[in-house]
Nucleic acid binder design. Structure first.
Lengths: 193, 193
DNA sequence: ATTTACAAACCAACCAGTCGGTATGTTATA
DNA sequence: TATAACATACCGACTGGTTGGTTTGTAAAT
């Protein structure tokens, strides 16, 4: 299943054959179809697992950030910074996002699968938006920005920087872009001296 | 070729069969292979055409923005705003970016093709970076941000918002995110009253 | 003794690509 | 102007190989 995931991240779901997966995983075809009723079912279980890990990662990082400060703005800034550091500490190039991979071939998947992805992405929106609303209450900032799209911007920067880092082979791009999001939040909400 | 492009944007290159393309385009298999020596050659010609249009679009919009103001910061802000308006004026959902589609299946393409994409993306970096450097000279801003990654951020926001808008079926996301980039640039460089 | 976990051989459908042939020009020659 | 010579655009049946998926056999675990 890990083998399948990395192959699909390299070649896309449609460009990945079952034969390629079982060769990579070093199992027989019989074993494959014993575990998965079809290739589509593999695709479903793969996103499901990926989405679960993604959600878990989101929640854990949020809890961690909340433990490091009482101030909601600082919590959010730390939250972003934690991802920044995490990405920075990778030495292999980032493997890519399965969600984006699936979405680039959305006609190959049925709506249930696309719903799993949508739910995962909406959870990011929700969690960040909650923080932003708390911040808005506490800080009287004069800029009136749309908070929902500002929350979405985190995922936008993730997905966008994955694409660029893939093309330019520059892993650092991801952390740099997260730093810009971090900076943008500071400029929007932080009290000026 | 238009038919091929839209099919590939929906299903990815690996998930698109030649039969699907010729059916969509309503041509015979003979005609297809008369014009393209192979499926891979179609892929090559398709990105080449897409990259040419992309570059042209970039340069034209830049010229247009430069014609609307003498101030480099205003030029860049107008530049972003022009894309924002362009996206807003679309009524059909945005079809997606062929570059991102290819990059999600990078193992399916040879290096020449990936180079075409890289060159296109680097041109965006170059053009925006030029403007940012001019702005930096003219405006004495105290924030010291990395200009190269700030230039990259435009493409990051494009690609990232394409992904999100594809998943959430919300076309407005793209314009909203461009507005945030616009706002970020203003906060970074614009003189405070 | 039955179920689970796998392996190997196998299958029909489909794939990218080929091939012999046709229709429609275009140019050269007379 | 008529015709021969050639070029380009195109067709769709066909092919060898690959695809996702099945069937049958078997060895271990319960």
């Amino acid at each position: 299943m890990n083998a399948a995931e990395s192959t699909i991240l390299d070649r896309g779901f449609g460009g990945t054959t079952v034969n390629a997966v079982i060769e990579q995983a070093d199992v027989s075809k019989g074993a494959f179809f014993h575990h998965f009723s079809s290739k589509a079912e593999l695709g479903r279980q793969l996103v499901q697992r990926y989405a679960d890990k993604d959600t878990q990662h989101l929640e854990q990082t949020l809890v961690k950030a909340e433990g490091l400060s009482d101030d909601p703005l600082q919590q959010l800034l730390i939250f972003v910074k934690l991802f920044e550091q995490e990405i920075e500490s990778l030495e292999e190039p980032f493997p890519g996002c399965l969600f984006a991979s699936y979405l680039q071939q959305s006609e190959l998947f049925d709506d249930n699968i696309l719903d799993i992805i949508r739910e995962s992405m909406l959870l990011w929106r929700t969690r960040v938006l909650e923080k932003l609303k708390t911040i808005e209450k506490r800080y009287s900032h004069h800029n009136d920005v749309d908070l929902e799209s500002l929350a979405d911007m985190l995922m936008v920067i993730f997905e966008g920087s994955f694409v660029l880092s893939q093309s330019l082979n520059e892993n650092k791009i991801i952390a740099q872009q997260l730093a810009h999001y971090h900076n943008y939040l500071k400029l929007l909400f932080e009290e000026k001296p």
